[in-house]
Nucleic acid binder design. Structure first.
Length: 822
RNA sequence: GGGGGAAUGGCGGAACGGUAGACGCAGCCGCCUCAAAAGCGGCCGGGCACAACCCGUGUGGGUUCAAAUCCCACUUCCCCCACCA
């Protein structure tokens, strides 16, 4: 009776052995091979891994294993993004200790990551909630603070009433909290910000350098940064010494300004509003204050109230009314804009509603006189009724007008960015304490480096009401590092995106207790050669990390590049029977479950096979059973031949006799070539590679049942090398049965050879006027003349050519002959 | 409103401008079996006289000897950003 493959036993056995022999640890620094840093975005330890996680880690693992077998010095680490709200919510809901909850989850998920047969270097594992890790969070925060890149100020911020904390702009999705989906409110609060905007130009311009990034991700970052070039200038105010600054990208339309619109929060409102209008303006501002940004923008119509004050257009000297409106944002540009109804859609709407005049100052090129317009004309054109600038094109006028304003000291060319500084403080418990204290005498003080880490206290009551640390006197009350007098600690913690903005550097030097990492290690291993993770981080983690890395680079803490991730790959989602997996739906396919029923090799193959990795794919029970079948066929084809195949030298080509044998050897090399091409091209379409292994197994199954020719024995011996990156356990088991004592994962991948890939016979397609009329079997290298001669003997060809003159012949060697006739 | 991407059998998907539908799933037929499962072998876009031939990669044009592939317009879907002045 044949020995069958028991995947449960084999998978456990090999995982244990890999563990003991530590074969996946990155080799020492003096290793001469080219380095390759491959990384998957670190997971949040939420409890259990499901096959959706596995899709991501399987891809990363296949890449790591391929690169290792192709001779690179691969570093492939793993860790835990362990701070965050779910742990705290568990505390609120069922009294769990966030630390214990998180540690238990990490232990369970780490077990599951190992269960997937992944090849991580566990000696580099990190958890961001370790004091050994967040100490360096604090240290890095202080470096940013020293350079003026971390600052506290009062500003209108996003407040999630459910999570009881502020949020960064990047964490507000459609006006709602990214975690709990509650509508976010605007509040004026004093908060910590990181000055990411001071890197705006580099973050934008350097996207050009990132050839290995998906275009859509770069576009998203460009849009998010939102660079816009224009002119900032000021209007005088009637009966006042103050001036109102406005920003516009369309200074060419300035003679068409018929009013000025300012945000209700604008500091000048109180000063300029007339007595008569005071109550109306106040009421209007009040009515907006309680509204969320979501309501204030998309849901509300344009509205506004006249302040009673007038501004003077610095160019036309016209007197225009100043209105407070709901459509001007307080924190973009100057918080005030000129209203040009004729040439801006929003202004047009607003003017029509409030009976403000529409003054046309731009006409389409080629037009002389303005015709009455029913909608704003927003394109460039030619200026009219614009003083000296009349007749100019929009583009020329923008330069000329800006110059005139600058000469008069009233304005200048200005670049504005849509994105804002990164709000990093959170009124939550389970995060890194911000290392700042407030002294009654000395004010805001940094905690000295040698007093780090500021330990996050345990045994703090977590109720979900207000900031837990703020209520803990043992934590709050401290001594001023400067004068020693009484002081209070900052009670806010850091946004968890702070930790994940630099973790890839800590992996390189995870046990360093004098620095977050040794720059020498960064010089050796950075940048990350292949980063794999979801597209949802396009403007969050990926933008923050680029900002941090540029800061590190400017300090000399990195290698030459100032970009952390050279190449980026977004894997697609995984559905289950066409539906999103979720606990609430109860349709989650767990790792433990599928490892038990199908085996993790089958799972890995299925995840790589079902679609290209960037596409959304669908887990189905039928689909996975196809891969289980495949592995069964692999074993049954090989099992009878282990003994004789053991003697085969797999690095030398076998003597293949029959066409079937040659085709089998060829199939081996086609599959090997596909695996290598998909890896080095970074396309990672291993679905096609595995399809070629299917073809190979189909060929082998037929031949292997009929004897043990050299070709069959060769194929059996080559198979584990091909399977190793994708189905690492069965590959190892086969390799052992073939008499090897060293792991197959330490072997070099099978090198495709031209001799094996060559064919004896090709099919030459014969077309007449581009339509296929015959196929010729021929030796490779058949000449055009010979092909033509043979084609003319094919009835399918001659029938089509009947009575026609051959005008032209297109010949693609070994592929096609197209006879053009007419 | 702005931007990015996609569209191929019943399904997932293959296809350097050169044999469309590889490979798998589902389905159908056969072998094996007392039977079933498993396994093994075969069929599997549509039309037809089942051979020849014709049609066929969202729609309509174009470039080319040749288009799923390149270009233009349109339709539908997905994703991102959206009173950003």
């Amino acid at each position: 009776m044949a020995d069958t493959y028991d995947f449960r036993t084999a998978e456990r056995k090999w995982q244990d052995r890999w563990e003991q022999s530590k074969i996946y640890a990155a080799p020492p620094a003096d290793d001469a091979r080219e380095k390759y840093y491959t990384l998957e975005m670190l997971p949040y330890p939420s409890g259990d891994l499901h096959v959706g996680h596995a899709k991501n880690y399987t891809l990363g693992d296949a890449v790591a294993r391929m690169m290792r077998m192709l001779g690179y010095n691969v570093i492939h680490p793993m860790g835990w993004d362990a701070f965050g709200l779910p742990a705290e919510n568990a505390a609120i809901q069922r009294g769990a200790d966030p630390n214990v909850w998180t540690r238990e989850n990490i232990a369970n998920m780490e077990r599951q990551v190992r269960l997937m047969g992944t090849s991580y270097d566990w000696s580099r594992e990190i958890a961001t909630c370790d004091p050994d890790y967040y100490r360096w969070n604090q240290w890095l925060f202080l470096r940013l603070y020293e350079h003026g890149l971390a600052y506290k100020r009062e500003a209108p911020v996003n407040w999630c009433p459910n999570d009881q904390t502020v949020l960064a702009n990047e964490q507000v999705i459609d006006g709602r909290c990214w975690r709990c989906d509650h509508v976010v409110e605007r509040r004026n609060l004093s908060q910590w910000f990181l000055k990411i905007t001071s890197y705006a130009d580099r973050l934008l311009d350097d996207l050009e350098k990132l050839d290995g990034w998906p275009e859509r991700t770069k576009t998203m970052q460009r849009n998010w940064i939102g660079r816009s070039e224009g002119t900032q200038f000021s209007f005088g105010i009637e009966n006042s010494q103050s001036r109102i600054s406005v920003f516009t990208t369309r200074i060419d339309t300035v003679y068409g300004a018929t009013y000025l619109a300012i945000a209700p929060e604008h500091p000048l409102v109180a000063e300029i509003v007339t007595k008569r209008q005071q109550n109306a303006v106040k009421e209007f501002a009040e009515s907006l204050r309680s509204k969320s940004e979501l309501e204030r923008t998309s849901l509300m119509e344009k509205a506004g109230v006249f302040t009673g004050a007038f501004a003077i257009n610095p160019l036309s000297h016209e007197r225009v009314p100043i209105w407070v409106t709901n459509y001007v944002l307080a924190d973009y540009g100057t918080g005030a804009v000129m209203g040009v109804p004729a040439h801006d859609e929003r202004d047009f709407d607003f003017a029509r509603k409030h009976g403000l005049p529409v003054a046309q100052v731009i006409v389409p090129p080629g037009t002389e006189d303005p015709e009455p317009i029913a909608a704003a004309y927003v394109d460039d054109g030619r200026l009219i009724a614009s003083g000296d600038f009349s007749g100019m094109s929009s583009a020329r006028a923008r330069k000329a007008i800006t110059q005139r304003l600058a000469a008069a000291g009233l304005g200048e060319a200005q670049i504005n960015y849509r994105f804002r500084d990164w709000l990093v403080s959170r009124q939550r418990y389970w995060g890194t304490p911000i290392p700042i204290v407030y002294c009654e005498k000395c004010g805001e003080q940094a905690v000295p480096d040698d007093a780090l880490p500021v330990i996050l206290p345990s045994d703090v009551p977590i109720t979900g009401e207000g900031s837990p640390l703020a209520r803990d006197p043992k934590f709050i009350e401290t001594a001023c590092p400067n004068c020693g007098g009484p002081a209070r600690r900052e009670s806010d913690t850091m946004d968890t995106f702070f930790e994940s903005s630099w973790y890839y550097l800590r992996y390189l030097d995870p046990h360093n207790d004098t620095a977050p990492w040794n720059p020498e290690f960064a010089k050796r291993w950075m940048s990350v050669d292949q980063y794999i993770g979801g597209a949802e981080h396009a403007v969050l983690h990926l933008l923050y990390s680029r900002f941090f890395y540029k800061f590190f680079h400017d300090r000399g803490w990195t290698g030459e590049s100032d970009e952390p991730f050279t190449r980026l790959f977004h894997q697609g989602m995984l559905l289950y029977n066409g539906e999103k997996m979720s606990k609430s739906r109860g349709n989650v396919v767990g790792i433990d479950q599928t490892a038990e029923t199908n085996g993790v090799d089958a799972m890995r193959l299925f995840l790589l096979y079902v679609t290209p990795p960037e596409d959304t794919s669908d887990w189905t029970d039928e689909g996975i059973s196809g891969r289980v079948r495949f592995l069964g066929r692999v074993w049954r084809a090989c099992e009878p031949h282990f003994e004789r195949a053991a003697a085969v030298d797999v690095r030398a080509l076998p003597q293949a006799q029959s066409p079937e044998e040659k085709a089998l050897v060829r199939a081996v090399h086609i599959a090997a070539k596909s695996a290598i091409d998909e890896t080095l091209s970074r396309r990672f379409h291993y679905n096609t590679t595995i399809a070629k292994m299917d073809e190979f197994i189909n060929a082998l199954t037929g031949l292997a049942s009929r004897g043990d020719s050299q070709a069959v024995l060769y194929a059996v011996h080559a198979l584990p090398l091909l399977l190793a990156p994708f189905a690492p356990h069965i590959a190892e088991e086969l390799w052992e049965r073939l008499g090897h004592t060293q792991s197959v994962h330490l072997e070099r991948f099978l090198q495709p050879q031209d001799a094996a890939l060559a064919v004896d016979e090709i099919t030459l397609v014969v077309q007449v006027n581009g339509k296929i009329r015959a196929r010729l079997q021929a030796a490779p290298g058949i000449s055009e003349d010979e092909a033509f001669e043979r084609a003319m003997q094919e009835s399918g060809v001659t029938v089509q050519l009947d009575g026609k003159e051959v005008r032209k012949r297109i010949f693609v060697p070994d592929k096609l002959l197209n006879i053009v006739a007419g």
